[in-house]
Write a protein that binds this DNA or RNA. Structure first.
Ligand SMILES: [Mn+2]
Ligand SMILES: [Mn+2]
Ligand SMILES: [Mn+2]
Ligand SMILES: [Mn+2]
Lengths: 230, 230
DNA sequence: GCTAAAATTTAGCCTGCTCTAAATTGGATT
DNA sequence: AATCCAATTTAGAGCAGGCTAAATTTTAGC
């Protein structure tokens, strides 16, 4: 197992996520996600490919994917990140829009011992505050279902599976309207020109209107059958 | 306030501690404490002196001390370190010999927000698990009294103030014999050649013999008057 | 006071990771 | 098929922080 720096861990996480969502991680997409220049990405991809064992498969000009060794590093880092986020919310009283940044730094320095103690304290949780699955000690990750709310049909009854955690302002807006993982919503309507969605959210008296940026940050699945009343 | 890297923070902590204990921080002592070569120390001292504002006062060949700006960085880092150590013990169930290493990494990445939330959760504590004072939010640090147990007179009744946290094996030995901060001991005797100390520790039936490495790691002050029985 | 040892600095180098500016290339458009 | 463009790579550089080897200065012993 090669030692990995914070930079390498962040690159591998980004390659893993992009490859999963878009098939492969291209230079430009990686540069955008990581906040570096494309030239820097090219250099790093060469180094990750040259690592022993290689951490990525890189075909110049056609992007990269992680190798099994690279995936392992990515999943270990994702596990630390998501456990830390939940820990910050549950133990230190953070709001869910504050945890991502902090976890982004801590994920590179907490030991395996600390990671497992946090997991134990939290009861070996399966999901982080945003609804993302937490790899278990063996790095097994539950399959993620769900599609963007932005693509939902009008009239559909849906349950929120997870929300993107990158934009704090979006998260605050989601908390405001009650769009947390588990929330049940019906798509009441959609406007043509500006892609606004009108939603009926269970437990809320008034319908809510959200814009496309917010709608793209919410991932949903068909709502399960009516849950029994309390 | 200049941005400071983990390296710079560790250098400033070391300079602060050495200057406090030994008057000034010399190149060789710093190199030993930080685990780098003397040449590396010289280079860093030059950079710290050139910082705007300067973080150290450095007279080539006669060592360095921190400036007010450097002391501030050192104390902020020490505050984070000691709060983290106590947090790891209290919240995550670490033993006191396990926390130093973990804190040494975490101290460079926890935000001010996280630091203050930890302090609040712990009740704004004044001492870490080893008895070292924790700078408060204004970075005020209680004066430390106490001298090494190794220098105690035979017959003296003493109270443990703090213990060095650098050597995990020494800490485990101290826990074994009950030499924690607050413990009250009487120096029962001392051997001439090998500097062993025989101690009567209040609450322990049998006297204990400790070697010089352990005796040097324990800091004591004259015991207060007899405490009333429970 | 002279000299040997110890401490310290200098010189030169290296790795990791980033950048800007200048090629290059693959694919789309006409 | 020629051309253009967007994506990508290459070339060259810089900074932080470390190292080794060689010089230099201080200190200490005599
Ligand atoms: Mn996150
Ligand atoms: Mn990160
Ligand atoms: Mn410590
Ligand atoms: Mn440190």
């Amino acid at each position: 197992m090669p030692e990995t720096s914070p930079s390498v861990q962040d690159y591998l996480k980004a390659i893993y996520h992009l490859a999963r969502r878009e098939g492969r991680a291209t230079t430009t997409r990686l540069a955008a996600v990581l906040g570096v220049t494309p030239a820097s990405v090219t250099g790093m991809l060469k180094r990750l490919m040259a690592e022993q064992p290689p951490l990525v498969v890189y075909h110049p000009r056609r992007g990269a994917t992680v190798t099994p060794a690279g995936e392992r590093v990515a999943l270990e880092t994702i596990r630390r990140h998501r456990l830390l986020e939940l820990f910050l919310v549950r133990v230190l009283g953070y709001r869910w829009d504050e945890v991502h940044e902090e976890a982004e730094r801590l994920e590179h320095v907490v030991s395996e011992q600390m990671t497992n103690r946090i997991a134990q304290l939290l009861g070996e949780p399966a999901f982080d505050p945003h609804g993302h699955p937490i790899p278990d000690r063996k790095l097994a990750l539950p399959a993620v279902q769900g599609f963007p709310l932005a693509q939902a049909e009008v009239g559909a009854r849906l349950q929120v599976v997870s929300v993107s955690d990158g934009d704090a302002a979006v998260l605050r807006r989601l908390a405001e309207v009650g769009l947390q993982p588990g929330a049940v919503v019906r798509v009441a309507g959609r406007t043509a020109g500006d892609h606004l969605l009108s939603l009926a959210i269970r437990g809320r008296a008034q319908p809510v209107v959200i814009g496309p940026a917010v709608a793209a940050a919410v991932f949903v699945a068909p709502a399960p059958e009516m849950t029994e009343p309390a």
